[in-house]
Design a protein around this nucleic acid. Structure first.
Lengths: 224, 224
DNA sequence: CCTCGCTGTGTGACCAAGTCACCAAAAGAT
DNA sequence: ATCTTTTGGTGACTTGGTCACACAGCGAGG
């Protein structure tokens, strides 16, 4: 961690020198192995996490035992949920799971509150993180309510594809990502395969016809 | 506005005297007639609104022209969305419409930011409002994905009923409240009527068998 | 009073998607 | 090599959303 992790967060670059120092000394870089639950209902989070590396999957466990994927926190973003727990003492039903090995900055409650009082820039950073998440949730709701599954799946495949156009995920995983049943994923993928857009193997989807998927994924917006 | 509107907000009761005075003098009570759009995409909101009286319906206009109901802001709550717009300069796609005549306290940006810096209590109040909304959205998503329409409609009817067990809303309105089509509402209501739980008239639903609706509405949670 | 037109409601046909109950194939485990 | 677990495939069925259209209540104007 040469120099400062702060450079990874554009929103914090404008912090005055003294605040920046206080933030650095009052926080700690932590590593978390893949699969760990970073936060969960019942745990009062005492740290605000800013992700340096890796991804955290935020999902909600339903009463019925099933799960909805809510959003994904990437490097350079923060787990606002944790913030909310920290400041509001409210119980969230959301769970955060490290999808990969994760490096993050942990800002303890005291430091957080102190900085939130002192620095407008810091406050703005936090509020922006909040609004970002809220907007994400809005578009998620919009998608769930109005978007066809095939369109959503196409879009998600494109998002999840690595640089070799490969998605490593089982049908079941894709199902919970989109809040639908595995069977629906299986059928839709079969259809994609029939159209020559993808090839399938156990746990793997290879995109062979990117343009087709892209056209489908865009079709929703185009209708406007 | 005798005494102070601040008493309407429990979260603000612990404000120190000087901050409280500054909040009162630096803000303004405004009235808005029913039907006004309190905020909408594109309008940069310069005021944080705290509702004293009336309700504001927050919904999202989709690309496709349709609408999803997101949540309702009641007296004693705040339009956090506006806050987010204020602080994050992000464009929300959400719209807030006054459902009734509304009285609200408008806190201008400058006052807001000043107070957020000075007072921990005020900050906590704001963050709590945020988390409240986020949790609401979570349960909304959960409902949309996992809950049956009849259960959701039963619950909503009970919520919307006035003290004479009457809901004044057309099927179309109930449809957008629940993010579904009018036809689905019509069919479900027919079924409720058949079971003797409600009576219908143009634009009105009268609840005649509360217990039945309640049992249905609770059935979801009971399954756990 | 009648008619026009608007808004709200009812309905049937159809399609998309979620559920259930299985089965079969692939990968791991012993 | 066999057993077990995980993953994917399929058909039948239900729920919910879409479309097209019919019709009823009600106010405005002639």
């Amino acid at each position: 961690m040469d120099g400062s992790w702060i450079t990874k967060f554009p929103g914090l670059s404008r912090l005055p020198e003294d605040i920046r120092l206080q933030l650095e000394s009052g926080s700690q870089v932590v590593s978390v192995p893949a699969g760990t639950e970073v936060f969960a209902p019942g745990q009062s989070a005492d740290n605000l996490l800013l992700l340096l590396d890796g991804t955290v999957r935020v999902h909600q466990r339903s009463d019925t035992g099933r799960e909805v994927f809510l959003y994904r926190v990437n490097a350079g973003e923060s787990c606002v949920l944790t913030t909310a727990c920290m400041l509001a003492f409210e119980d969230y039903s959301a769970v955060g799971t490290a999808e990969t090995d994760v490096q993050a900055v942990a800002i303890p409650r005291a430091t957080f509150d102190d900085l939130a009082g002192k620095s407008t820039v810091f406050r703005e950073f936090i509020f922006k993180a909040y609004s970002r998440r809220i907007t994400d949730l809005f578009t998620l709701i919009d998608d769930i309510v109005f978007q066809r599954m095939d369109v959503r799946l196409a879009a998600r495949l494109l998002e999840l594809a690595d640089n070799q156009d490969t998605v490593r995920a089982t049908h079941a995983v894709l199902g919970t990502e989109l809040g639908t049943a595995r069977e629906v994923i299986s059928r839709t993928l079969s259809e994609f395969q029939r159209r020559g857009w993808i090839e399938q193997a156990r746990g793997v989807v290879r995109i062979t016809g990117r343009s087709g998927l892209e056209r489908l994924a865009r079709s929703a917006r185009a209708e406007v």
